[in-house]
Design a protein around this nucleic acid. Sequence first.
DNA 1: CAATCTATGCGACAGCTGTCGACTAAGCAA
DNA 2: TTGCTTAGTCGACAGCTGTCGCATAGATTG
Lengths: 185, 185
Amino acid sequence: MNPDDPRAQRTRARLRAAILDLAADKELGSITMAEVARRAGVNRATVYLHFPDMDALVTDAMEETVAQVARAAALCPRDAPRDRAPEPLVGLFEHVAARATLYRRMLGAQGSALFAARMRERLTAELATRFTGGSRPEGFDDVPAELHATYLAGALTGVISHWVTGERPAPAAEVTLAFWRLFRA
Amino acid sequence: MNPDDPRAQRTRARLRAAILDLAADKELGSITMAEVARRAGVNRATVYLHFPDMDALVTDAMEETVAQVARAAALCPRDAPRDRAPEPLVGLFEHVAARATLYRRMLGAQGSALFAARMRERLTAELATRFTGGSRPEGFDDVPAELHATYLAGALTGVISHWVTGERPAPAAEVTLAFWRLFRA
DNA sequence: CAATCTATGCGACAGCTGTCGACTAAGCAA
DNA sequence: TTGCTTAGTCGACAGCTGTCGCATAGATTG
């Protein structure tokens, strides 16, 4: 399968759109491959030419979104005042709030372990790059940068997961500020 | 279904043992219900009398183990010296190290989203209880205790996940100390 | 335009899932 | 012990999955 073939690109785009479309309506667990294929206007067998399974499809469809989150997280300066979260972090939580249902479906109990792993991984990588690039919270030189990045990536995805999963989610501004205070240590 | 019926208890115990047994050999994704039933010496249909699906079975089978981790985490005093992790935390990481394969199967990309959610949930609950019970890191009174607990629960599961997933995992003592330093902020 | 390549459509298959109704046998209560 | 209750077994079913070989149509190359 040549991934650059315009036919293949079109098909993948359709599949990505279809799964996101369906995920807006129901839990991942109750979406079938047959359904995705139908929605995408593609033969069921064709799906498997592009993605080994549902998890891979879902995760791939979220790639852009996740990259956005990771980039925003890595952009946060550490020297912002304790009572005012930096702009990128505010944007990050607003981004999630605007897609709360989607993130709940992805990160919730019915969600995709692959997606969760991928999201943490991207965050970790982005933060680690930022850290080894020099700008990093002080006083942790005796902790491996990679581990520090993982710690924060876990904390962030944990908070997001808990946030979007809750019954009556708190306002974004509130969570953002609380997270920022915890992060600033 | 009466959960106290000795027949039911015996069957559930067999199923829990069977899934943990199988999980030692292969990824969760390649274990079938039929396989679990066979291994447990139980009819396939019987499994569904106790657990709605594989995720539920796996998560239930890990309940004790997860509770152990959550308890250990909540027991950590915050005033231990920066260069020496408190005993409960050491025990926690050793516990995970001794079951690294199992945790990798549970928390990895092929793992169970339900299990991951449950583990974070238990950790959050245990820490939140501890926090509202008075003993809590200072300087965070302006952050909801529940959110603080979630932050740490996410960080811990994130680190564990990353740790057991890595190719050549670092020694437990190393990770323990690094985590402790990050936690102490 | 013609010839070639290949992504997709199509139908079929074995295996797994979750559920059902009828039957068997283990536990409990009198 | 006797009889009732109910967990478990058994066989069957529809639906989904992942894979296959073959046919078709869309893209590329000359």
